[in-house]
Design a protein around this nucleic acid. Structure first.
Lengths: 345, 345
DNA sequence: TTGTACGCGTTATCAT
DNA sequence: ATGATAACGCGTACAA
């Protein structure tokens, strides 16, 4: 019953040939006579021989593993990106090791160190909130300094020279707000997170730019900033109660859906009284009441792109190419229009 | 700038000692004189020496990696379980390699084969839909036959002897339906998936048992079965239009939220006209309108348990213990009551 | 056509 | 106190 994994050595012993003969025979080398070749191959098939990945990794100094470090896994956008990474990587024969930083700087550091000691050929990651707040990227420099390729996605930083994949958050927010302006909205609010997160800062910038472009004034009291995982709805309730706006851009779909819930409870009609647009086109956007118009970030494409960039770097590693040739790819967004901005949906 | 990874050999050469001396010194062996020990340790620290995981894996025949194969990653419940696995595993110094089967039998097989060749010490998985449909588990037997520990969670099968972690789906459905009966509901419907999925079969069974227990008759036309990822709402619309029920148990939160949307559009009030209960206590349950009463499956605990069982097996592997001593752990569920069953929420 | 020897990086055992 | 050697499993340059 217990058929332990078989090795070249076993086969060699059993068939009374040398290990290298077995190795060559299994790669169909013409150095080996048809006879022994077939004998060996038959035996190998019979015992279901598969070469040991670890041994091969050690020999090639390539693991065919890529390390993915993300702040959270119970999170629609990140899982979407992950799916893209996983598909592309698998396609190319790579496996994916995932570590979750839980938005913690220390965990991010520990995870990277764990993986950097030979377990992976390269990293794909989105920075933890704490890392962005501290603006400390030495653990990343450490790793790139060792020649390990790194691709950052979504939560990136200008302080680091490496490959990056992002959406144009400024542009995305601008598009969203402009579409509100075009549909006749005059007073547009922003419901967002505290702005040490790169993305929220950029979305705010896009919001401001769109207002300017549309000739609308900026009112600080039309902007509400709450912690990323806020609990207390006091401030948000006030915000919507004192409603002085006819539309609101929300930094993600959770903020949007919570906002819609509050607004509806206070008797506002959506989209007539207040129109909503969110970021992150996930389940909530599709199944909320009303359904939520949302900026789709195409996470899967982002993941594919990140994996592609990483694997290219990894496989080019030992070639002539300039290793400091870093790219930043921008994944286009699209606005998915639904019931929170138009009655027709 | 490019400080390539340093090895024992480098240190040995540099300090003009033997490799084994370096190895011992770094493990603080008292065989080595304080002098050389300190010299070597200082040097190692300076050059940030970390032993190569791959080499250690090869030597120990232990990778400290565990393989997780799940049907889908953009899926609240699975990511929740994954989080539990990841936390526990990381705590114990293990890394997690994730593969996604996309509900495909072939992908599941390929993924397992990729990982089974030395990349991991054991598997944690939930069976793909296709695998359950085909009832073909040879790839799993293959792996366990090689002595690789396997823990199945949620999507399990009786055909396989191995460790398992499940929720009691029968019990869970019974609790949910009983609570509806207790609150005075008389005609309780079931909105579920086609039943080749182990879980939906069990939830249906629990539904039937609860009706019997409550002295309520079973009406086949109160049961609607649709494909797991159905698109067309024709049948569901009919189902709710011809509404002959005052409550409905839904096999997951997506089915529940879609159902609520349809019912509300047709003018029914929730929970007065129809009460809803779903499975999978995720974002949708928390943020739908009304909020959804839901069976929480405590995925994170499930993941922790699975990881614990697996790691115990892995680390006991070479000991005396009976390897055929398989357990099935049942994670208790709880009913999270919200607005879809009671006005007070 | 086949086999020997070496190396990947580490550790453990056995000399010296 | 230190070093040489073998071993983990594989691949390959070189020797026979």
């Amino acid at each position: 019953m217990l058929k332990k994994k078989i090795t070249l050595k076993h086969i060699a012993r059993e068939l009374d040939v040398s290990i290298s003969t077995v190795s060559k025979a299994l790669k169909n080398s013409h150095e080996i006579s048809r006879d022994t070749r077939e004998k060996i191959q038959a035996f190998a098939r019979l015992y279901n021989f598969k070469p040991n990945n670890i041994a091969i990794s050690l020999k090639n100094k390539r693991t065919k593993n890529i390390g993915v470090i993300i702040p959270d896994i119970v999170h629609h956008f990140f899982t979407t990106v992950f799916r893209g990474i996983e598909h592309y990587a698998n396609d190319k024969g790579y496996n994916v090791i995932v570590c979750v930083s839980d938005e913690s700087f220390d965990k991010e550091v520990i995870n990277m160190e764990m993986l950097a000691n030979g377990s992976i050929d390269g990293f794909i990651m989105a920075l933890s909130a704490e890392t962005q707040k501290r603006n400390d990227f030495n653990h990343l420099r450490e790793v790139t300094g060792q020649g390990i390729p790194l691709v950052l996605f979504d939560r990136v930083t200008d302080e680091l020279e490496c490959d990056k994949v992002i959406i144009d958050d400024v542009e995305a927010a601008r598009i969203a707000v402009s579409s509100l302006i075009q549909s006749g909205k005059k007073r547009i609010a922003l419901f967002t997170t505290e702005s040490y997160l790169n993305v929220s800062a950029k979305r705010e910038q896009g919001y401001l730019e769109a207002l300017k472009l549309g000739g609308l004034p900026v009112h600080e009291n039309l902007i509400l900033r709450l912690p990323y995982q806020y609990e207390d709805e006091t401030l948000s309730k006030e915000f919507f109660r004192d409603q002085q706006f006819d539309a609101v851009l929300c930094v993600n779909e959770i903020f949007a859906v919570r906002g819609m819930g509050i607004a509806q409870k206070q008797g506002y009609r959506i989209p007539e009284d207040i129109a909503f647009i969110g970021f992150t086109d996930g389940l909530l956007s599709r199944y909320s009441t009303p359904t939520l118009t949302s900026v789709a970030q195409h996470g899967e494409k982002m993941g594919e792109m990140a994996a592609r960039m990483l694997i290219e770097k990894v496989e080019r590693e030992y070639d002539e190419e300039d290793p400091t040739n870093f790219r930043t790819e921008i994944i286009p967004v699209s606005l998915i229009e639904r019931g929170s901005t138009s009655k027709n949906h």
